[in-house]
């Protein structure tokens, strides 16, 4: 490729910073993480909701993500119940998105001449978001380093135009680039810093704490109740009139409702980790969250950002 041989980054944060710089240089708005517990970067409204409607969009951001069932008490070399995803969403998907993506790998120090990069079929589907797309998981030497998806549908709505979505599992990717075998040993900041910190310094203890809570302690009755409450609140928000009686403005509360959907989804994940949801019940719960996501998508397309034009 045409890029110069990149200098290997020295820390986890440098990889994040390089991705930010790279995608900023490609014209993406660099957003900040969403301030709620989510299972993946896709849940950020900058992806889920912004993939809807016809307005062009280009955004990139880091999203802390939680998958309670993946907790391993910080012992597994690369499984974590809390981790970071880097997310890029561009609508409409540009024709050279694969090249742009490969450029981002070079930017973080992956030498294409030495590594084996592969696009392996992975039809992405989020049953909880009522969303699906076609694409790949991207492998670097057998390691899944990213998800690459052309969104076809979100919240039951056809995506037109189609968004291209890139999701990087930052820890795995960084471990690979930095040559680290165990995530907890990975330098978080520059190892030459006055106070060098590893990923373990930052997260080992929390992984233990959350793993114990997720698997054995979380109060399932309370969680079940919270689930119901979030579901009810979402419906209540969306049941409101589009016209705000106080301001007299048309205000469709798609985002506050979507927050409740996110909440319900995370609570479901916790219940799942507690092992109290059976195979048959699972489908029912997923269906309930999907119903919320769908209603939120319906509401979003009734907003200006979702392409609604006031008469």
């Amino acid at each position: 490729m045409t890029h110069p041989t990149p200098i290997t980054p020295r820390s986890f944060q440098e990889i994040i910073l390089r991705l930010q710089t790279y995608w900023a240089s490609k014209g993406c708005a660099i957003l900040q993480p969403y301030d709620m517990e989510v299972g993946a970067g896709t849940f950020h409204p900058a992806t889920t909701l912004r993939a809807l409607g016809s307005a062009p969009w280009a955004a990139a951001y880091v999203q802390p993500s939680r998958r309670p069932t993946d907790g391993r008490y910080g012992e597994n070399p690369n499984r974590l119940q809390h981790y970071y995803q880097y997310q890029v969403l561009i609508k409409p998907s540009p024709p050279d998105l694969q090249e742009l993506y490969l450029g981002s790998l070079e930017a973080i120090g992956i030498d294409m001449a030495l590594h084996d990069i592969r696009f392996v079929e992975d039809d992405w589907e989020s049953p909880t978001l009522g969303a699906w797309g076609l694409g790949w998981e991207v492998w670097c030497d057998g390691m899944e380093v990213s998800q690459f998806t052309y969104f076809q549908q979100v919240g039951g709505h056809d995506c037109q135009p189609v968004s291209g979505e890139l999701t990087y599992g930052l820890e795995r990717l960084a471990m690979y680039v930095l040559g680290i075998d165990h995530v907890m040993d990975m330098p978080f900041n520059d190892p030459q810093s006055p106070i060098p910190l590893t990923y373990g310094d930052v997260f080992k203890q929390t992984e233990e704490e959350y793993a114990r809570w997720n698997f054995d302690v979380a109060n399932t009755e309370v969680l079940l109740r919270h689930f119901e409450e979030a579901e009810a609140e979402c419906a209540a928000i969306l049941a409101q009139s589009h016209d705000d009686p106080k301001t007299g403005k048309r205000i469709v509360m798609a985002h506050p409702a979507y927050d409740q959907c996110i909440k319900a989804s995370h609570i479901f994940n916790l219940l799942d980790a507690r092992g109290v949801i059976s195979v048959t019940e699972r489908q029912a719960y997923i269906g309930r969250v999907r119903a919320l996501a769908k209603q939120c998508a319906d509401a979003f397309v009734q907003t200006a950002a979702g392409g609604y034009a006031t008469a």
């Binding site: 391993r72 597994n76 070399p77 690369n78 499984r79 030495l114 590594h115 084996d116 670097c140 030497d141 057998g142 390691m143 690979y176 075998d181």
Partner: peptide, 17 residues
């Protein structure tokens, strides 16, 4: 060599699981 080392590492993580 790099590719094989990478694959071996991924496998170790999988099998550690």
């Amino acid at each position: 060599a790099t590719i094989l080392a990478g694959n071996q590492k991924v496998l170790s993580a999988r099998l550690a699981d």
